[in-house]
């Protein structure tokens, strides 16, 4: 039965349902119960923003508070995964992946390939991504392109509560390592979510709005901004189609290319920095696959090539805004309306 819940609750529910269904699912991370070495309290805080709250009491012994050593516990989670568990490791901020990158890049991503397909590594690394939280340059990056670049990893970044629950359940059931990116400014965002368990397959983009004039492709928080932009554009009689990629690896090229083949125009919105990003990836692929359908140059709306600023005024300017998205779309679509 569907009811409105926040993305934070949806993630908690996904963990709860999978822990109930499968005893090999365990959760590891810093402060997810009550701090390393603490026995754990029934009403423990449940992680830095409370996403895992309540699970310790329900599944005693299956949520492990770890020391402040990402390379140790991410490595432990990956090792446990190769030995038959399905660990969900909470990395807190994806920015912290720097200290445990070898475990992810050279170990988890490689096992299946280097052991001739005989090893599987069903680990999920959950982490917060994105700016707008006034948390400065080391806690605000959108590092999705870095992980998308690495074969052997699956990369997920939901834009709403319904998708977050179904994608996290799929991530836990998946036999490959999954980097599950949660935009911290979407934790409070509410949508209709069924109470039952459901899995959304990877590599299937969602067409969240249909339109015939321009295709706007995005993922994560900026999907919501793209929808706002589409509302603005509709007032100027520009009908934008909005595609939420949902998973960046694998990625659903077919839905993107088909849409651009019908609209002839592409705007890619990416909160990551502009070089070697999801934006450049999508723009390049569309240019190659749908060149003859394009009526205008693909547009990229991204963060600037700069660290996330600490000044709130600058930080707000840093993330692609609905206005910036609408402006990029009008630039290539407005003459279509005049014609």
């Amino acid at each position: 039965m569907a009811r409105k819940i926040s993305m934070k609750q949806a993630i908690n529910e996904a963990l709860d349902l999978e822990m109930k269904r499968d005893p090999t699912v365990i959760v590891m991370g810093e402060d997810i119960v009550g701090g390393a070495g603490a026995p754990g309290e029934e009403d423990a805080w449940g992680g830095v923003l409370g996403v895992t709250k309540g699970l310790h009491a329900k599944y005693p012994g299956r949520l492990l508070d770890t020391p402040l050593s990402e390379s140790a516990y991410i490595g432990a989670a990956i090792g446990a995964a190769t030995c038959g568990m399905r660990p969900v490791a909470e990395l807190m901020f994806l920015d912290f992946s720097g200290v445990c990158f070898d475990q992810i890049l050279n170990q988890a991503a490689k096992f299946k390939y280097m052991f001739g397909g005989k090893a599987k590594t069903p680990v999920v690394i959950r982490a917060m991504v994105g700016a707008g939280f006034r948390a400065a340059a080391q806690h605000s990056q959108m590092l999705t392109p870095v992980f998308t670049h690495i074969p052997g990893l699956k990369v997920v970044c939901p834009s709403n509560a319904y998708d977050a629950k179904g994608l996290l359940i799929q991530a836990i059931r998946d036999d490959d390592p999954v980097i599950f990116c949660e935009h911290k400014n979407l934790y409070g965002h509410e949508t209709d979510v069924p109470a039952e368990a459901y899995a959304i397959p990877f590599g299937e983009a969602s067409v969240v709005r249909e339109g015939k004039d321009v295709t706007i492709v995005s993922y994560g928080l900026t999907v919501q901004r793209a929808l706002e932009a589409a509302e603005k554009l509709a007032k100027d009689r520009i009908q934008a189609e909005v595609i939420d990629l949902r998973t960046l690896s694998p990625i659903d090229w077919d839905t993107v290319v088909e849409s651009v083949e019908s609209t002839g125009r592409l705007v890619v919105v990416d909160e990551a920095n502009p070089r070697c990003s999801i934006a450049t990836d999508v723009a390049a692929r569309v240019a190659q696959e749908a060149f003859n359908a394009l009526k205008a140059a693909p547009q990229m709306v991204t963060a600037p090539h700069a660290p996330v600023p600490f000044s709130p005024v600058l930080e707000d300017l840093y993330i692609p805004t609905a206005d910036a998205i609408a402006k990029a779309a009008s630039k290539i679509a407005s003459h279509a309306i005049a014609a």
Partner: peptide
Amino acid sequence: LEDLLRYKRLD
């Protein structure tokens, strides 16, 4: 279609 998919995805 979205409503049908949401139904079909349920365990």
